[in-house]
Design a protein around this nucleic acid. Structure first.
Lengths: 403, 403
DNA sequence: AGGATAAAGTTCGCAGTACGAACAAATTCA
DNA sequence: TGAATTTGTTCGTACTGCGAACTTTATCCT
């Protein structure tokens, strides 16, 4: 039960009732389509007449469309309803330190087109180029309307001002990306941290079992990010910066982290950590110092390749990384008892090796009565990009803001 | 924005609108009382006529009562409205390992009576006694109605079954406390973990500044518990067991914890930890082994007394405890970016010494852009007991469950 | 004194909504 | 051909908030 925030509440009007019920209807169609009005009546518990009225309105607004006629053993045949995926398009943008990917998606979140471009060091120049690409994409894929632009960022936005305030990997200063994009395209723009986007993507599109309301996404790359969904909604914290569990101290006298502290989770369990473990193991083994410079060029992808070839040192390094990954996830499981933890990143490619280690460490270290599933994501699913699209679709499919 | 949970949703009816608006009204009166209908119109943004209709209904239902007539420089004088605190009573129960406190509260959460009784090892026998005490209290303080019984527990309840499943400090087995109390008294019963109760108490009654929607309560006694409120509501996790941050590993090869792991936050920062630090410091200093048995009798209260007398070793022990308390709070601040962290427990009595250390550690270790305030609670406020009462009042003052 | 002004609170018709019963439509089966 | 069954629509009712007009109760100014 939520406390009503008297500094920011919304009274109900007559229209509120329809708003609530038509969103429920939209979600029921999304889940069960193709579906008849009679079934919607049964799923929702609303009256037949009410379902008719709501669907009529949604069809008029082009959210739904009528489809084929179904078959039943007896009685009048039902007419099926579907989401009208052609109703509108959504632009998703996934900004990463090196590459930016942008995509046009239909309302049903099918990608219609997708392309990439290099991310630049100068935000102003980059945004100008991005805007041109977005406009070209929209021209190339004309839709009845575009609902908005969702952007996944390797950084943080300030909640009240919506400005990008922290993006160390991009090297950008504080920048008002949102207004810039909005003014140039005339579309509503939603920014979100990449880990949060991944969490949203899995929460809305993941093949999860029934009744998942608490989900944490752990993104593993050169750093570690966490996107936290509790009670069915994203946790953004006081100024939108919640989710920096990657910088929680796990080993007080561990290696130095770029954040200034030592022994952060991300310094122990990120891709960079695996590379470091490999380097350490190699130099110890060879007893050489000169070899270190060769190692400097190693990437995490190289480690994974070596693991595939059953390289002992690479396997050991990956094992160490997996151990620390598990330790951090144990913290999340102990503290927040989510239904699901999804792991995002290249590391999932070696999940047959990493998964068991993580599971074992979590089982041993997590103190909980909950049964949390730990799942790797399918890298093909492009969680950041899909999450960016959820940012826009959420406005129509999410629960209305009440009281 | 919340995703609609299709496994557990609620459609809106005409009555939903009134439900939403009258709860808003109730909260506005609670905040601004005494307040006129005209002011409520301005606070809420509803029409004058709507405010009149809603207040009329709330007065008829005895939630509100009309009070004195106000004064204005011009025009008709307003009639003030108040919460009708005599409308109903609430029973709050705070079960702790040694002592159980129970209280009768008015709707305005004023304690009308309060008494204590020993907590027993056998739950069945204890509950029988508790029920007698509750019935006596209700007889001694007749109210128009009793709205329910809220119970704060040093343990965990399973969310689906609502059974008490984990209470190591009580030594009780799994037990269906809720049904037992409910059947005996005929009143609705709400159970909640003690740390969660503290969080609720501070969230609803604390003297916080505007717009706090994310709050974490850290209870420090022989263990450490955390009650987490994010997005304005309690985080219970998948089966109601969220909040065990006390058992997150902070020092992988630290002292053994009763949970089976080593170096848990609570084994480093609880009252018991301070006693252990003192004992260690003392034995190192004296170089004696025999003194340890004397030390075994020391309580945390003794440490606090010694600190007041500026005992060097006690101060050092408390300082160590404060350091670790800060480290754990830094984890919470980094990961969840709450607006406020409230600390509950005897340790707040020495907050002039502990607070600065905690603040320093959090400042140094927490990686965040949020400004989280760390506040000690007033022990006089009886947060567990007040939180138990919130459990019942919440049902009427909380936001309605929609979609 | 008496009218103008101002503010609080009430009344009433309207529009939007869900409900629920009755009805129309479409189909199968005996 | 008609009964049974299921889908979908129509229509009157009740509830709700809106908004304008109205009543009530004050003070201020002429």
């Amino acid at each position: 039960m939520r406390k009503i925030d008297l500094n920011n509440f919304q009274v109900a009007t007559n229209g509120t009732v329809r708003d609530i019920n038509s969103r429920i209807m939209l979600n029921l169609v999304r889940k069960h389509q193709p579906v008849s009005r009679a079934d919607l009546m049964r799923y929702s518990g609303l009256q037949r007449s009410t379902v008719s009225a709501i669907t009529e309105q949604l069809i008029a607004e082009r959210w739904l469309k009528v489809g084929a006629v179904g078959n039943l053993p007896r009685g009048r045949k039902p007419t099926f309803l579907h989401l009208n995926t052609e109703r509108c398009g959504v632009i998703g943008v996934d900004i990463q330190p090196a590459t930016t990917t942008l995509a046009v998606s239909s309302m049903g979140s099918q990608f219609l087109a997708q392309e990439s471009m290099p991310t630049e060091k100068d935000p102003a120049e980059f945004i100008a180029r991005l805007i041109r690409r977005i406009k070209d994409l929209m021209r190339a894929h004309p839709q009845n309307s575009y609902e908005g632009i969702g952007v996944s960022l390797p950084g943080r936005k300030d909640l009240p001002s919506q400005r990008l305030v922290f993006a160390p990997n991009l090297g950008w200063p504080e920048y008002d990306l949102k207004s810039r994009l909005q003014d140039a395209t005339g579309l509503p723009v939603e920014l979100e941290n990449a880990a949060n986007a991944c969490a949203l993507s899995e929460f809305w599109f993941g093949h999860l079992s029934k009744g998942v309301n608490n989900l944490i996404a752990v993104t593993v790359s050169d750093g570690i990010g966490t996107g936290i969904i509790l009670n069915g909604q994203l946790v953004r914290g006081s100024t939108g910066v919640a989710g920096e569990f990657g910088h929680v101290t796990q080993m007080p006298d561990g290696p130095q982290c770029r954040c200034g502290n030592s022994g952060c989770w991300e310094v122990l369990a990120s891709n960079a950590a695996a590379v470091r473990y490999y380097t350490e193991l190699a130099s110890v083994h060879k007893g050489e110092v000169g070899s270190k410079s060769d190692m400097a060029k190693l990437s995490f992808g190289d480690i994974l390749r070596l693991v595939e070839q059953n390289d002992v040192r690479a396997c050991k390094a990956l094992d160490q990384m997996a151990h620390h990954l598990g330790a951090g996830i144990a913290m999340l499981v102990t503290g927040l008892a989510p239904d699901v933890v999804v792991v995002v990143g290249e590391v999932t490619r070696a999940w047959d090796k990493v998964g068991p280690v993580v599971a074992e460490v979590v089982k041993r270290r997590a103190f909980t009565h909950a049964v949390t599933r730990i799942l790797p994501t399918d890298p093909e699913a492009q969680p950041r990009l899909r999450g960016a699209i959820v940012l826009v679709l959420q406005k129509h499919f999410g629960a209305p803001v009440i009281a």
